[in-house]
Simulated assay, not measured.
Amino acid sequence: MTTNLVGYARVSTAEQNPQLQHDALEHVGVIRTFTDYASGSSQDRPAWQECLEFLQPGNVLVVWKLDRVGRSTADLARIVTELGQRGIQFKSLTESFLDTTTADGRLIFHIFSALAEHERSRMLERTRAGLEAARKRGRVGGRPSTMTAAKINAARTMHAEKTPIVEIAQALGVGRMSVSRALAKERTSKSD
């Protein structure tokens, strides 16, 4: 198993200079550095994808700072965990506590991951509580229905004339499932 250091650098815009990151990565002996010019929230990070494909078991992914890789604690924990499952270690140069090549670094990462999991769980709890409170006030989440009262009446009439659902949907400019759900809801409310 080889231990090659592979670097990843990211700056938010093409006007910013990644040289500080490159110098730091080169100083520790990185064999290759992948650089993106995109914000951390951008899904379009081609160098990041190329880096992930390049990494092999036994490699160590080295970054100058944690925020160069992940957008949040949970995101970073997921990335480092996935790398670990592939036999790839992770090291941050400025946050020396996160270095999975050492026993202490692995311990800190597990604590870090547990905190991220706790953060996710708390967020889900708050979301569920908020949705429940909204439901009690009569609010229903989700997008507004594309089926207005006029469209439901038209769909009901067309359906009574044995017009296929697909044709009804095309005529009303809505999806087939929207028509099916509206008609099913009509049938359910009549049977109650």
Rank of each mutant, 00 (worst) to 15 (best):
V62P: 04
G105C: 07
Q85M: 00
L20T: 09
H118L: 15
T81S: 09
I31Q: 14
T73D: 00
R32G: 11
G84P: 09
H118D: 12
E50M: 13
L107I: 06
Q16Y: 08
A47M: 12
A47I: 14
D67W: 08
D67H: 11
S42V: 12
D75G: 06
S39H: 13
F109N: 09
G105M: 03
L76M: 15
S39M: 08
G29I: 13
P57V: 05
Q49R: 13
L25I: 05
L124D: 11
Q16L: 04
V62M: 09
S72L: 02
R68C: 13
L83M: 03
R78W: 10
V80R: 09
L124W: 04
F34G: 10
I108M: 15
A116G: 09
E82L: 06
R78L: 15
I31M: 10
L98M: 12
L107V: 08
V60M: 13
Q19F: 05
F97R: 06
K65V: 01
L66Q: 04
R71H: 03
T33L: 07
H27L: 10
K91T: 04
G105K: 01
C51K: 02
E119R: 00
W64V: 01
F97V: 08
A116H: 07
Q21A: 09
Q56D: 06
T100G: 05
W48T: 00
S96R: 12
P46F: 15
E95N: 03
A74C: 01
D75H: 15
Q89V: 03
D75R: 03
M123S: 10
A103G: 06
L124S: 13
S39G: 12
D104T: 15
